[in-house]
């Protein structure tokens, strides 16, 4: 349901641009400085546990500028009694992983609720997620849709079977061949309990080119991957608020305890699917 307005806004934007003598140009903004905030992202799968601890950077600073998070410890505790302390690897990086030789716990188990707590100096960040079952995508394809005039839009469509009699939430991440993030979205089974669920992700328009829209343009013969995850309710609402915040310029609802900590983590069983785009997809 929450996706409706994203589509509607897309439509409004097209109509607005079509009708008005509009103009877009770059402007300079005098960004305010804020003290860096802690950001923890992570994933617990049956095969691995990986977390990153970083800090926000100023808007004008390159996003990959490394800000050391020192004096940090990340602990994962399962409600089945399992626990481990993650190891910073490689040393000096902001990545924390579970190593087999130290913890005898390299991944999660389906149905176990994991509490992750990170201690960074005086800060304690804590969040919870229950490891969910895998989801199998059954059909995946590209389709062009006619919009206004000669303009068409390319959609990636896929579907899967929802498990009946339970609330399910899904998170899919689309990546390029080189692992670079392309787009992501979420979906719930609200109103579709036990049904086949169809998802469509807008990719690029027929007007886009590699030069003008490198972020969305897909080359002929390029392969994309779809990583499908089933997620918890709290994660779904966090990701939804991230989408809303992106449109309305506000922060997402906090995933971790305390308002000052950013990011989230998922305990899930991801499945990865590939699809190659060809220009001869029917327009």
């Amino acid at each position: 349901m929450k996706r409706i307005f994203i589509w509607v806004n897309l439509f409004c934007g097209l109509v607005t641009l079509f009708c008005a003598t509009s103009c877009e140009h770059e402007i300079s903004v005098d960004y305010h400085h804020v003290s860096p905030k802690l950001v923890m992202n992570g994933i617990i799968t049956p095969d691995s546990i990986l977390f990153t601890l970083e800090k926000t950077v100023d808007v004008t600073t390159p996003i990959d500028a490394k800000v050391d998070v020192i004096d940090a410890q990340v602990r994962v505790v399962g409600d089945d009694g399992s626990q481990c302390i993650l190891t910073r690897q490689p040393l000096g990086s902001n990545r924390f992983v579970a190593l087999d030789d130290l913890n005898h716990m390299v991944g999660g188990i389906y149905g176990v609720k994991y509490t992750v707590s990170a201690t960074v100096g005086d800060d304690i960040i804590e969040g919870v997620s229950t490891l969910s079952a895998p989801v199998t995508i059954e059909n995946i394809k590209f389709e062009w849709v006619d919009l206004i005039g000669d303009t068409q839009s390319l959609f990636l469509t896929f579907d899967w079977q929802d498990s009946p009699d339970e609330e399910n939430y899904y998170h899919f991440l689309i990546k390029r061949e080189n692992g670079e993030a392309y787009s992501w979205s979420i979906r719930s089974d609200e109103g579709e309990d036990g049904n086949r669920i169809y998802a469509l992700q807008n990719c690029m328009s027929s007007e886009d080119s590699a030069k003008d829209a490198p972020d969305v343009f897909i080359e002929d013969g390029e392969t994309l991957t779809v990583e499908m995850r089933q997620i918890n309710r709290d994660t779904y609402y966090y990701l939804m608020s991230l989408i809303v915040g992106d449109n309305s310029s506000s922060n997402p609802i906090p995933f971790y305890t305390g308002e000052d900590y950013l990011g989230y983590f998922e305990a899930c069983t991801p499945r990865i699917y590939s699809i190659t785009y060809h220009d001869n997809v029917l327009k």
């Binding site: 960004y31 950001v39 926000t56 808007v59 996003i63 992501w184 915040g245 310029s249």
Partner: peptide
């Protein structure tokens, strides 16, 4: 209006932080 004052990465995408 609200403009970002900081940013961070999540799932390979840039996310803005609004102070």
């Amino acid at each position: 209006y609200s403009a970002p004052s900081a940013k961070y990465q999540q799932d390979g995408k840039t996310v803005f932080y609004y102070s």
